[in-house]
Write a protein that binds this DNA or RNA. Structure first.
Lengths: 352, 352
DNA sequence: ATGAAAGCGCTAACAT
DNA sequence: ATGTTAGCGCTTTCAT
């Protein structure tokens, strides 16, 4: 019989013990066979293997973790898994990249707050994971616990948590600069900015900085009234702000959104207001989300190369897990401008 | 000193023992204080609490699980977390709903294959989770292990895994019927169907059945050439099939896509082909993805009420975890038609 | 009200 | 080549 029944008639999962008894060997031998470690005689191995199959034995990862500190589970903490957009796509890619390395991903939302990020960084959930990928937006350097205390951690996004932790970052400032430069080159001078709060989000701060730098380089004075704050970085916020700007008769000939969701919301608002895109208003975002490529018109944006980023992040974390004492590394992935129909009518009819 | 240093100078996480020593009590007392269980004197409690804070103690969930079989981690196994679309939004909602109940979500991709789903159902990862939410598309009833063997499991999607497991399903057939009826009422008779493989996906089979039922009820004969197979249910596939249909000069006055990603891809293809939507071709999908509401024109679709679904799923699983022996339950969430501009020009200018 | 100790399933010294 | 056993951190009976 596979396993033992508890008083309820419920069957407990078979353990090494059960397998050992069935195969007539010691549990150590079973452990070695299961993990393909140590040298076990071929005959014994196959006997154990069939016992494993007969019982449907599966190692208990909690027990293994308790003993060895390893589970094959890594954590991914993001501000929030909104319905659509960057973190959603990123986590899909992280799950994929992790899966390719035999790792499973535990997803946590931090809400983008200091408390949430601290909870991810040192909360009890850490004890089931081998390492953590943290998309930090609120955490400040002094919050980071003494490195020796910290289990393997890789920070995603702006480098802000000191030189102690590995970082995989994306050129946020560069991306915003590229997009803004592109709009300026098209002759646009009144660029509406859909901007996250730079005091609460490092990403927002970097992107705003890049935008300003491009304006400055082109000799265009920044107009405070063109910067429209958004709380959440989603379609609804982009729609609301652009719609409001139109109603207020604010003059603008371009929209630079800090991400594609905002841009797509803004695009929709412009349709509803009857403004021609890109004729009257050019629109661009950052992220190169899938839906950007299928919008009407297609959305010009900066591609952060999320696949590269996700793969690099998982690889860096895997490295850190196997080599906890190596010095911290920093990887930066460059952004790439994708010009499409929302800024250039010519680009709209190029091949997909 | 917080914790002990290992030979490497690396600091081990503090344990109940460390806290007990610092507070001058036994580890049992500490355990009771940490879990707010049993009656401990107020003075002792506060002494322990400050020791916990001083050391930054965090319970080791692997050890707890080993002892009690509980971690606060649940699994979510989906066919695949594509870049955008249904499962993406669903998992975001599940993570949210789980978070509200203090649960964390371990995400797994099954690839939509029998092996992948079996792996999720009985693989070693189960030993770190309290329960599993399984979006089964390939698994057949006989694959399901004897229920007594199985840890808490709730199946999402079509009811196909017998009466043994809890199911939270969505009215797939109903949804497809609603959408098709709507298109027929508009006078459309040549409906192009972007259809997943009904032999490989139960969802596809149900949706196709609903579509056919609506056709039949309206006395419209189904035309095999109008059913275009798609491998993946994403934008690219929808784009490719609609584009191909146009090039082949296939006549159609509507597109019914089995999900919104396909529909949005198709919509883009129609733009590129210069077909008027909804004038020449009406387009509708299923899922009510965020981007459907911001597409141009806005996409008519069937809303599966994902929030309700996600919440119900998590709640059902939580119930199952606390009451393993209760009889299995089935919940079905009804679909709701959302008429928008992609089928009705009038609807396009209604309030968002 | 608090403490001592067993044992969850596993790995890895240490024995044989 | 295989077996015995300690102990990872925790909860929980059983004593006190």
């Amino acid at each position: 019989m596979a396993g033992t029944r508890d008083h309820d008639g419920h069957r407990a999962a078979p353990t090494l013990h059960d397998v050992a008894r069935l195969a007539g060997v010691s549990i150590k031998t079973v452990s070695e066979v299961v993990n393909r470690t140590g040298r076990v005689a071929a005959a014994t191995t196959s006997r154990v293997d069939s016992a494993v199959r007969a019982l449907g034995y599966q190692p208990n990862l909690s027990a293994r973790r308790l003993r060895t500190g390893t589970t094959g589970v890594i954590g991914l903490a993001v501000p929030e898994l909104s319905m659509s957009g960057y973190f959603n796509e990123l986590s899909a890619l992280v799950v994929r990249a992790a899966g390719e390395r035999g790792l499973t991903v535990l997803i946590e939302e931090t809400g983008g707050t200091r408390e949430g990020e601290l909870r991810a960084l040192r909360g009890p959930r850490r004890s089931v994971m081998d390492g953590l990928l943290l998309s930090a937006v609120a955490l400040e350097e002094p919050d980071v616990p003494e490195p020796a205390t910290l289990a393997p951690t890789v920070v995603l996004g702006e480098r802000r948590l000191g030189a102690v932790l590995d970082h995989v970052t994306f050129g946020n400032e560069e991306a915003a600069r590229l997009v803004t430069e592109h709009l300026l080159q098209l002759g646009r001078r009144r660029i509406l900015v859909l901007a996250g709060d730079p005091t609460r989000s490092a990403t927002a701060a970097r992107r705003l900085a890049g935008h300003r730098r491009a304006l400055h380089a082109a000799g265009v004075a920044p107009s405070p009234e063109l910067v429209r704050p958004v709380g959440t970085w989603d379609h609804a916020a982009g729609y609301a702000q652009v719609r409001a700007a139109c109603r207020e008769a604010l003059e603008f000939d371009a929209v630079f959104a800090m991400n594609d969701s905002l841009a797509l919301g803004g695009l929709r608002a412009l349709h509803d207001e009857g403004r021609d895109v890109p004729g009257a208003v050019a629109v661009a975002g950052i992220d190169d989300v899938v839906d950007a490529r299928y919008a009407h018109p297609r959305l010009t944006t900066a591609d952060p190369h999320r696949e590269v980023l996700a793969d690099l992040a998982v690889r860096t974390l895997a490295e850190r897990i196997t080599h906890p004492r190596r010095p911290a590394v920093v990887h930066e992935v460059a952004a790439e401008l994708r010009v499409r129909g929302s800024t250039s009518a010519a680009a709209e009819h190029a091949p997909v």
